[in-house]
């Protein structure tokens, strides 16, 4: 079955009436991910956009049609570990899936994530990366891109936007030697679905999926352009699609003639203040990261 039929025929496990901002990448990611994971899944979502959108529930209404818990901002992977440990103890195969924003993943939640990854817990952890604490009003996170305007890295007379580089989570997670690491983009649905299925197919080990999640509200982009932006992030090599399994890095899409990163950021209000020099620096960062990834992929083929 092709991925489109698969998505058409799978039950939407998100309750009716749940909706995030217009053009939200995370809502699309959540709905699609849960369609692939299926009903025998328990979901853990820390505070963030998806919890804020009511996905865990409001008053006495459930947000999902499967068990769902709003974990603490910093204990998602540890809570998941406890649930899965007891499921295994009592002979249940139910998948335990975490769906967390990049702030909860890369900052205060990183300790519990890293611990669970190091122990090789039998879990699927999905990070929707919208580059900041968007639910609370677009504050800076460790995964906010350098130069980005956020509400805590304002563009002022002296300091203009975030001064530090983005923490490279997928690379860091892959270096935990976990079972499976992959980057996904909602603009490349076939690859997206395949990677979710792949993550679901393991019967042990930690699987980490890092998904680029456009945020019109926080990024200052047009809601109807979210998929276009997600595609450009891949086409500029700003967000390359790759996967790591058995210590082997694979580039899933080698862009023949990558567009300059300026093509991506010109659509984003959060980068409007960047100078030519800033953009050149960002291009260098993109090239450096991509070359490193290519080298790792080449090394993987040699071994």
């Amino acid at each position: 079955m092709n991925y489109i039929d698969k998505l058409l025929q799978s039950e939407d496990l998100v309750s009716p009436g749940i909706s995030a901002c217009q053009g939200c990448g995370a809502e699309l990611i959540l709905r699609t991910a849960l369609k692939i994971m299926g009903k025998d899944t328990a979901v853990v979502i820390p505070p963030g956009c998806m919890a804020g959108a009511g996905v865990v529930g409001w008053n006495f209404d459930n947000g999902l049609k499967v068990p769902v818990h709003i974990s603490l901002l910093d204990n998602t992977a540890a809570f998941m570990t406890g649930v899965k440990t007891m499921y295994e103890f009592s002979g249940k195969d139910t998948k335990v899936v975490g769906i967390a924003g990049d702030g909860a993943t890369s900052d205060c939640g990183f300790q519990s994530l890293s611990g669970a990854a190091e122990r090789g817990e039998n879990l699927i952890y999905i990070c929707y990366d919208n580059e900041g604490y968007m639910n609370t009003g677009f504050q800076r996170s460790g995964t906010t891109s350098k130069g980005s305007l956020t509400s805590t890295t304002p563009v002022g007379k002296v300091i203009k936007g975030k001064e530090q580089n983005k923490k490279d989570l997928p690379m860091i997670m892959a270096d935990h030697d976990i079972a499976y690491t992959a980057t996904l983009s909602p603009a490349y649905m076939q690859d997206f679905v395949r990677k979710l299925e792949k993550a679901a197919s393991f019967d042990s080990g930690f699987r980490y999926l890092h998904i680029y999640s456009p945020c019109p509200t926080g990024w200052g982009t047009a809601p109807e352009c979210s998929i276009d932006i997600a595609r450009k992030a891949v086409q500029t090599n700003f967000f390359p699609l790759f996967e790591v399994e058995n210590h082997k890095y694979t580039l899933n899409l080698e862009v023949k003639n990558p567009q300059p990163v300026s093509e991506l950021i010109k659509q984003m209000g959060k980068f409007r203040h960047l100078t030519e020099e800033d953009i050149q620096e960002m291009q260098k960062m993109v090239d450096r990261k991509y070359n490193k990834l290519k080298a790792l992929a080449a090394m993987s083929q040699d071994n």
């Binding site: 910093d74 440990t85 009592s90 519990s112």
Partner: peptide, 15 residues
């Protein structure tokens, strides 16, 4: 922090 979080998940799952 994770010790308490793990047992919390486990008790949530009936342990």
């Amino acid at each position: 922090h994770s010790a308490m979080s793990v047992v919390q998940g486990a008790v949530a799952a009936g342990a």
